[in-house]
Design a protein around this nucleic acid. Sequence first.
DNA 1: CTGTTAGCGCTTTCAA
DNA 2: TTGAAAGCGCTAACAG
Lengths: 355, 355
Amino acid sequence: MSGPARPSVTLRDVAVRAGLSVMTASYTFSQPQRVSAASRDRVLAAARELGYQPNAAAKSLRTGKANAVGVVFSENLAYAFRDPQAAQFLAGVADICTEHGLGLTMLPTSGGREDPTVIASAPVDGFVFWTTTADDPTLAAAARTGKPVAIQGGPSVPGAECIGIDDNQAAQAVARLALHGSHRPLILSFPLSPDRVPSVTTGIDPDTATFPVTRNRLLGYRIAVTQAGLSWPDTTTAVLSHNDRTEASETARDLLAGHPNRYDTAICMSDEIAAGVLAAAQQLNIAVPQTLAVTGYDNGPDAETLQLTTVDQDLYRQGRTSAQAAMNLRPAPAMPSRWRVCPRATTRPGGDTGG
Amino acid sequence: MSGPARPSVTLRDVAVRAGLSVMTASYTFSQPQRVSAASRDRVLAAARELGYQPNAAAKSLRTGKANAVGVVFSENLAYAFRDPQAAQFLAGVADICTEHGLGLTMLPTSGGREDPTVIASAPVDGFVFWTTTADDPTLAAAARTGKPVAIQGGPSVPGAECIGIDDNQAAQAVARLALHGSHRPLILSFPLSPDRVPSVTTGIDPDTATFPVTRNRLLGYRIAVTQAGLSWPDTTTAVLSHNDRTEASETARDLLAGHPNRYDTAICMSDEIAAGVLAAAQQLNIAVPQTLAVTGYDNGPDAETLQLTTVDQDLYRQGRTSAQAAMNLRPAPAMPSRWRVCPRATTRPGGDTGG
DNA sequence: CTGTTAGCGCTTTCAA
DNA sequence: TTGAAAGCGCTAACAG
C-alpha cells in the first residue's frame, strides 16, 4: 500500500498542477521538442513551483540505465585513497564522470563471499577495475552482468577491456638503466598475489605472481638482468605486502644495514617504493647512485623532486580511457597506453635509454 | 565465460522455478526466518540455478533506500583524489561503507547551474560534504532533500551535522609555538573563497574568508599574533589558490628569495603547504628553525619525516564519523573532534605547548 | 507459513 | 501534440 514516508514531489503532482497529463510532463523533460511551447512552459512553471526533482531509482528501473560508473578495488576500498597511483587513475575516472554527469560509485567489496553479489546487483552501467587477478570472483561477477568492464593493468579476460602499458617492455627498459654498471641488483616488488605475503628470495619465478602487473614487470626485469650478463637465480627479490613507502624503507634498511655493499642497485616497482629506498639510503649514508642506483615506476608527482629515474606513464589518462570504455563512450578499444623511460639522477650515467 | 548480455533473471522467474509465490521468494532473501526451511531451500536452489541477482533500482524504488552515501566536492570531483587530506578523510568514509555494504557515490558536480539538480536527484541516502561555504547551492540542495547531511570543516548550517575540530583554538595553539622568538611572521593560507584568487596582503581580515576552515584558522592566528605582542596589521598573509606543495614552494621562494630575513616564521594551514615552504627554505639555504620556523596543520603521513611542528587531527576518523552521520548510523550528534599540537623540530624550542 | 493485492515514479507503446 | 494503458522488479500490508 503506502510506501515509506516520501516528501518528494512526483511527476504526477507536476502534471496535475499544470493541468496536463503525466506524459506531457515527462516529455517536457526528456523530449522537449515533442511538446508545445505553451504546455512546456506550464509544466516547467509547475515543476519550479513545487520544487520537483526526478526520482533516479524510478527512472533507472524503467530505463535500465543507472547513469553511474562502478569502480572496484577488489581488496579494500579505502586503498583507493591511500595509493597515490590509484588516486591519479581515479582522478581521470572522476573527470569523465563529471564531464558526462555520471555518478562514480565505489563498490564496497570486503574480500568476503558476498562480493560477487554486491557487484552483480550494483546500480551501475559499467565497471572499472583496478589491477586484479584473473581468478578474482568479483571480476567474473562483473563479466557475467554483460555490462562493459575495463581493467587497469590486467588481467586480460574475455569481455573486458584491458587498459595499461606494456609492463614487460617498460620494466626491461628501466631495468637496463638501473643495471648499468651493476653487479648485485635487488628488486623490490609489489605483492605477488592478493594474500600479500612478503618475502625475500633469489631467482624468483615471475609466473608465481598472479597479479599481471607484478608478473609482467618481473618478466621484464628478468630479461634485463639476463641480458646484462647477470644471473637471475642469484638475483634477490624482496616482495612487499603493499605499495607503501614506509614498508619499502624498512625493508630496504633491513637488507642494506650492516651490508652496504651487498646490493648496488634497487629496481623498484613504483616511485613510492623507490622513495622509501632513497630514504633508507640517506639514513644509512649510502651514496646514490654511486653505491646504490635506484629506479622507480610511474613518474608520479615526487619523481622529479627526487630526481628519480623511472618509467613515465599517464595513469590519469588511463583512468579517463577506462571510464570511457566502461560506459561505451568510445567507438574502438583503446590502444595500449604509451610509456617512456625518464633517466634522472638516481642511476649511474651512461645507461642505455633505448626501449 | 563472458557470456552474452542475458536478460536479467527476476524474482518472478525464481518463484516460478521453485513452484512458489514471488513473496515467498522475496522473504527468503529479506526475512528468511519467516519462510519454512523447505521453501527457503527450494528458492535458494532456484536462484542459484538461474543465477538470480536482485535488481537494485527496483528495490530502491520500492523501499526508498539507495544503500549508498553521496560524497560531494563542490568544486571539482577529481580534487578528492589530489588532496592528501581529502584522501585520508575519504578512506574513513570508505571503511564505513565497506563495513555496512554501502556504495560510496561521488557526485559529479561541475560548478555549473545543474549541480543542485544533480544533488537533489542523487540515488543516495545521505550526503557527506567536504569543506565548503555557507552559500554553496549544492549544500542547500542537499539540505532540501531532507536526507541527513554531514559536512567536514563546516559551515554549520541548520539540518546538517558539522564534523571537525575547533580550528580557531587549534590554530591559536600551533601559532603560539610558531611565534616563539618570532618578530616577522608570515602566514600561508588556504584560499579565502571558491574563486581561489591568490594574494599577498598584510593585516588580512579573517571575515573576508568564506571557507569556514580558512576563516577560523585565520582568526586563531590573529589572536596568537596579537597575544605575542606583534602587530596584525603588519603581518603578511599569502593566500594560495590551492592546497598544493608546489604552489606553496614557489610562493615561499618568491617571498623569501633575496630577502632571507624578511620573515622569520611561516605559519602554514596544512602540512602540504609547510612541506613546500621547507623545500623552498632548503633551496635558499635558510636554516630551519633558526632563521625560519615553520608549522603545518593535520599531522599527515609526511609530518614525522619532516619533523614538522603541526596540529594533529584524525581526518580518517572524521571521515568515519561523517559517513555514520550521513547514514544515521549513530544515535547522537558527534562531539567536536579532538586535536593536539605536535611540537617537533621546525619550531624554535621553548614555545608554549598549552592548548 | 504462504499468497494476493497494490503500488513505488517513471517511460515505452500505441491510440487519439 | 497529447494521453491512456501497461508495466520495469520489487516489497509493505494484509489476508488466508
